[in-house]
């Protein structure tokens, strides 16, 4: 019955088209992306780095980007790998990891997370409305990343520029995250 005229399913993101902020902070939904939760023991890090085309960082709170992919250190054997071009069916990251031939665990979390891009001179202050980490450039430089707390939810925070962050959040928490960021953005503009 596969030829019964069934159409291909279309996508609906939880944050589709959402944007907001204040005079000091811009908030917008990030485009769809591929993501894997990657787990690798130390001895296989280089094999996976090679397979993915991005060097998995081994220093806490750091990330690395190459070939349209960003690997975020989340824990001593855990990375969140984000790839551009998540509108394609399938997950090229899963495939690349599998090709490594080395022992690892990769799980597709492309749809589990959504991301909010926070930018502008008040970006750090807006995030500090709910995040207890020190977001000064000294403590949290460009490229720094961390799983942490934002108000009553958990996020993964990545600093993409001096005044820009990417906030990764589980999709059902995205309304809350956006709402609290909007409050933080309003307050950061005062």
């Amino acid at each position: 019955m596969v030829d019964s005229g069934i159409e291909m399913a279309t996508r609906t993101s939880s944050l589709f088209g959402l944007h907001g902020g204040s005079s000091a902070v811009r908030l917008e939904a990030a485009p769809a992306a591929e993501r894997i939760s990657l787990r690798v023991h130390a001895e296989n890090v280089s094999a996976l780095s090679g397979a993915l085309g991005v060097d998995l960082p081994v220093k806490p709170k750091t990330s690395a980007s190459a070939n349209g992919r960003t690997a975020l250190w989340l824990g001593p054997d855990e990375w969140l790998v984000i790839g551009e071009g998540g509108y394609d069916i399938g997950n090229s990251l899963m495939q690349a990891a599998a090709n490594s031939g080395a022992l690892h665990s990769a799980t597709d979390v492309s749809h589990r997370n959504v991301a909010i891009l926070v930018s502008g001179p008040g970006a750090a202050a807006a995030i500090n409305a709910g995040c207890p980490q020190d977001l000064s450039l000294k403590a949290f430089p460009v490229g720094a990343c961390s799983r942490t707390i934002f108000g009553k939810i958990e996020i993964v925070l990545l600093r993409t520029a001096e005044d820009a962050f990417r906030v990764e959040v589980w999709r059902s928490f995205s309304d809350y995250a956006f709402g609290l960021l909007a409050e933080g953005a309003r307050d950061a503009a005062l």
Binding site: I153, S172, F173, E183
Partner: peptide, 15 residues
């Protein structure tokens, strides 16, 4: 502080 109304507690909605 911010934890009032919609931000009192996250309301998780399915797709």
């Amino acid at each position: 502080a911010h934890s009032r109304g919609d931000l009192f507690d996250p309301a998780r909605k399915t797709p």
